[in-house]
Amino acid sequence: MKGMIFNIMRYAVHDGPGIRTTVFFKGCPLRCQWCHNPESIIRHQEIIFREERCLRCGDCFSVCRNGAIRREDGRFVYVRENCIQCGNCIEVCYAEAREMAGREMTTEEVMAEISKDVVFFDQSGGGVTFSGGEPLLQHEFLLSLLQSCKQKGIHTAVDTSGYVSPEILGQISPCVDLFLYDIKILDEARHRQFTGVPNRLVLDNLRRLSQWQKNVIVRLPLIPGVNDDQENIRQTGSFVASLGNIDEIHILPYHHTGLEKYRRLGLAYPLPEVAPPSPESLDRIVNELKRFVKTVVLGG
């Protein structure tokens, strides 16, 4: 079986317990305006262009048969709409200015990568985390990986938006040791405004996981001006508390590192300028949430 993966990160230490390998699936049903992994959004391959590395040698220009690279006073401009992602330009770009985001991989290929760090998982109580994008968007591929991990005794975590059909969630959940479950905004309209989708399904699915007695850590990406208001924090805390058996929230403070990635993909950054949350506001929010759940952690 094959899936579309855009990165496999070893020594990932913020996506669950211990030392982990995180497998990033490409493609996501949400359109969160703050997304810091824009290359994860679209399901198919894309070309990343780092102009600062470009030697202006023109090799990419010579091999492109689709007019996706245009010469413009000494520079080589990428015409994304003409590109068919054939990869010829990447093959000749030794400077690594051009790179393909997304790679079709088989279950065996991904497992080979995961298996490399088993000694570190065993030592640290770590394992593998499937993240994205939205890993459940490629649920059959995800399931085959989860089953392979279970066979090898590797701890599995799934980092999900929860925006998925309950049947699919039910299918994969027996093979998942830990869910890292994003809760973004409790207000339905604002959720739709900032993520492009309603939140009913997300909240219902979290209730299901709770009923199925799954291990869940709720993750709250904290975006100033979007979801850091007292109202949203209180609603989030109270919703999680109402489930009864979920007692850990991780706050993921907004950061700027995604901005550069948008430029490399030729995308506009959807969110207006936002400053990362201040230490004081983070303190306030941690304390607020602690009224509802036992463990509140800053960062993953």
Partner: peptide, 19 residues
């Protein structure tokens, strides 16, 4: 910085020595 970070450093060392 964190306790977890420190734990992971210790785990890295132990795993390297296991190897």
């Amino acid at each position: 910085e964190t306790e977890k970070g420190l734990d992971n450093l210790a785990h890295l060392v132990r795993a390297y020595f296991t190897l």
